Structure formats: structure tokens, C-alpha cells
Simulated scan of single mutants.
Amino acid sequence: MKKTITIPFSRYESSREAHSNVSDALDGEDIKQVEELEAEFAAYVGASYALATSHGTAALHLAMLALDLKRGDKVVCSVNAHPSIPEVVRHFDAEPVFIDIEEDTYNINLDKLEAYLDANSSKKLKAVIVTHLGGVTVDLERLYAMGRSYGVKIVEDASDALGATYKGKKIGSTGADIVCFNFSPHLKKNICNGGILVTDDDEIIERARLLANHAMVRDEDALEYIYDVVDIGNDYLLSELNAAYIRAQITEQDENIKRQKEIAKMYTEGLDGVEHVTVPQMINEENSFSLYIIKIDKNRDSFAVALREEGIGTGLHYIPLHLLTYYKSKYALRVNDFPVALRSFQQVLSLPIYANMSDEDVEKVISTIKKIAKTRV
């Protein structure tokens, strides 16, 4: 009989404000929820423009459209990212290029990125997509300087970085060409779906808005059912109902991050020195800890099974892209092509961390890990 998970990897909790906003939408109140969300989100992160989408992957796909990605173009990304990153690139018959990661943050290694850009300057090299794993950023000033120097656009995947900061500024306002957020991120599913694209670039937002609704245009003076189509777009639009719910999520995010940091501190103090377990570095005060990733030095998968048998869910961020059948076969990638990502993949394990976890839940996770660790030799 399968063990019931009592402390899941993620859990959503609907606030009173979320219920109120959703009720307004259901009751047909004259509130333009999507427009309100876009304005509130732009103000929250400090971006000039925000465009809500039906999902985080839709935001990424729309970003590629806005950059006019074409067949044969190249987009560089971390080999340790969700499959949605290279997936949106391949939908344009463009080519993702994978870069190995840093040992401690699991983010793209900027030295290796710069070496690749320096050795492969080409008009076909269109963009770099950088994933902020768990809300931890790379040296963004250096990244943006690379973008300017090598003439490539910088797109940030902030699926796990809502409310995270870099040098005191929220992700979304630090200088990227486009930043994409996901309100139902990969292994932490929300009750609703939604994404958002932010930018400070007038041309990018104009093109994104055009393409977000089938590239349809209307004459304001004509009948409302008269339209023209001026390009190839798609339907990326967010529903009013989802927007209503997400608006409340934004107002609560800073408090949620505060609680996540408290939980992370409890984990770090409780697991410090436990044999076979390595906790993440707590040096970076701007780490939002949307993920808490530990390393298990022996039999990570059996460790996760043992946790599941104790009712505790876990996650994995991520299976390196070069190990996945499609990319391995398509680009003739070898297992050892990205040694840091491979080594990390064999050890990393993401623990439950979310604002509505109780201290008792956290202590239960800690005590269970300690108990399991004692059985390892």
C-alpha cells in the first residue's frame, strides 16, 4: 500500500484576498483583472511593461517570438534547466546550446558561457536564457555586459524567482531584455496557471502584445467584429479568473519569502553536520529560497524513497537536459559532456519549503532525514 504523503513537496493556500478577487471575476464585477495584474506586477518588480500569459511556458515561447527567433538560430542555456527552456527554442527549429553549471548554485557557469560566446560569435547566436534556480542569481552585471559585448539578447527564466532580488533590485528590473515568470512553477504546481513577461524595451513589448492574440488588429472606429491579421501569432492570453487569483499571490509574495528564509535557516541549522547530507550555502542574503536543495552523497533515490515512505515529498531540480532522450539523440551528446551537472544530478534533492509549512512540519523533515542518514554506510 502506497504511503500517504503528509508533508508534500509543495502546497498552495488560498487567502481571503484571492477568494475575494475570484468572486469579483465570477460575479462579473467591472474589474479588468488581467490589466490590473499587469499594472500591479510591473510596479511590484519595477519593470516598465508586463504582459500576462496563460502559463510560464507561454511567456517563454512568446519571448522567442518577440525576439524574432528563426530556423537555425542558436540560443544558449544551462544544461540544468526545465525542459521548457530548450523546448520553446526547438519549436522555432532553432538550436539550443547547453552550458555546464556552477558547483554550489547549480546555475549556468558564466566562465564557460563567456568562453562559448567568445569562440562562437555569429549572427545566428540570438540569445542566452538564464534560469535563476530556486531564486539564486548569477552575477547579472557580468551577464548583461556579455550580452552587450557579444550582441546577444538576455532572457531570464524567473520561474522560481518571483520576488527574488539582485543587489537590492527585484528580478525583472535589473537589466535583462526579457524576464519570464511562472505562477505555477514546474514541480510546485499552483491551483491556477499563469505566466508573465516583463521588459523595459518598447519594441519588444509592442511586438509581444501584437503576437499574443494571433497578431490580430482592429480599427477603433470600426465594428468590434472587424479585424485584420498582420503576422503569425498565437493565443497566449491569461484568463480573467486566473488573473484574479494571481493578483492576491503577488501581494503575499514578500511575506512568503520571509517565511521561506526562516524555514531555510531551520533546515540549515538542523541538518548541519548530518552525515551524508550537505546543506546549501546561506551566505547570499538575497536567496529567496523558493527551493531548498541538499546533497545526498550516497544513493539519493533510495533516500528519497525512504522519505516518501515516511510521508515526506521531495523534488529534483533538474535532470540535466543532455541525459534526456530527445536532446541526447538530436545532438549526439555524451553522458560526461557536462561533468558538474552530472555529478550534481546524482546527489541533489529538493526538500519541501513553502510559506504555510509549520515549524512542526520542518522539524519532522529534519528529524526524518537524520533518522534515514544514520542507516547509510
Rank of each mutant, 00 (worst) to 15 (best):
residue 5 I to A: 04
residue 6 T to F: 15
residue 18 A to H: 01
residue 21 N to D: 12
residue 22 V to L: 09
residue 23 S to F: 04
residue 28 G to K: 08
residue 28 G to F: 12
residue 31 I to N: 13
residue 33 Q to V: 11
residue 34 V to H: 10
residue 40 E to L: 09
residue 42 A to V: 02
residue 43 A to D: 13
residue 48 S to W: 01
residue 53 T to G: 03
residue 56 G to R: 00
residue 64 M to R: 02
residue 64 M to E: 04
residue 65 L to C: 04
residue 67 L to Q: 15
residue 70 K to Q: 15
residue 76 V to Y: 03
residue 76 V to P: 01
residue 78 S to A: 14
residue 81 A to P: 00
residue 83 P to R: 05
residue 93 D to V: 06
residue 96 P to D: 10
residue 97 V to D: 03
residue 99 I to Y: 04
residue 101 I to K: 02
residue 103 E to D: 14
residue 104 D to R: 14
residue 106 Y to D: 09
residue 107 N to H: 12
residue 111 D to G: 05
residue 116 Y to S: 06
residue 119 A to P: 00
residue 123 K to T: 05
residue 123 K to E: 12
residue 127 A to D: 13
residue 128 V to D: 00
residue 135 G to N: 07
residue 138 V to F: 09
residue 138 V to M: 10
residue 141 E to H: 05
residue 142 R to V: 11
residue 143 L to H: 03
residue 147 G to T: 11
residue 147 G to Y: 03
residue 148 R to E: 11
residue 149 S to V: 04
residue 150 Y to T: 04
residue 151 G to E: 06
residue 152 V to P: 02
residue 154 I to R: 03
residue 158 A to Y: 03
residue 159 S to W: 02
residue 160 D to C: 13
residue 175 G to Q: 03
residue 176 A to G: 03
residue 180 C to N: 10
residue 180 C to V: 08
residue 180 C to D: 09
residue 185 P to M: 04
residue 185 P to F: 07
residue 189 K to D: 03
residue 189 K to Y: 00
residue 191 I to R: 05
residue 192 C to G: 06
residue 197 L to R: 00
residue 198 V to E: 00
residue 198 V to C: 03
residue 198 V to T: 06
residue 199 T to I: 08
residue 199 T to Y: 11
residue 201 D to P: 05
residue 206 E to V: 03
residue 207 R to Q: 09
residue 208 A to R: 00
residue 209 R to F: 00
residue 213 N to Y: 06
residue 216 M to R: 11
residue 218 R to F: 01
residue 220 E to K: 02
residue 247 R to N: 15
residue 248 A to H: 10
residue 251 T to G: 14
residue 254 D to N: 14
residue 254 D to G: 13
residue 260 Q to H: 08
residue 263 I to R: 00
residue 264 A to L: 11
residue 269 E to I: 10
residue 269 E to C: 07
residue 274 V to P: 02
residue 274 V to Q: 12
residue 275 E to H: 15
residue 275 E to R: 15
residue 278 T to P: 02
residue 284 N to M: 10
residue 285 E to N: 06
residue 287 N to Q: 14
residue 290 S to P: 01
residue 291 L to C: 13
residue 298 K to W: 15
residue 299 N to Y: 12
residue 301 D to I: 13
residue 309 E to Q: 12
residue 309 E to Y: 05
residue 311 G to F: 12
residue 313 G to P: 04
residue 322 H to W: 13
residue 326 Y to A: 09
residue 326 Y to S: 04
residue 327 Y to G: 02
residue 328 K to G: 07
residue 328 K to A: 12
residue 329 S to H: 05
residue 329 S to G: 04
residue 331 Y to T: 02
residue 335 V to M: 15
residue 344 S to M: 15
residue 344 S to N: 15
residue 351 L to K: 01
residue 359 D to Y: 07
residue 367 S to W: 07
residue 368 T to A: 11
residue 368 T to D: 11
residue 369 I to Y: 05
residue 371 K to Y: 08
residue 372 I to N: 01
residue 374 K to Y: 10
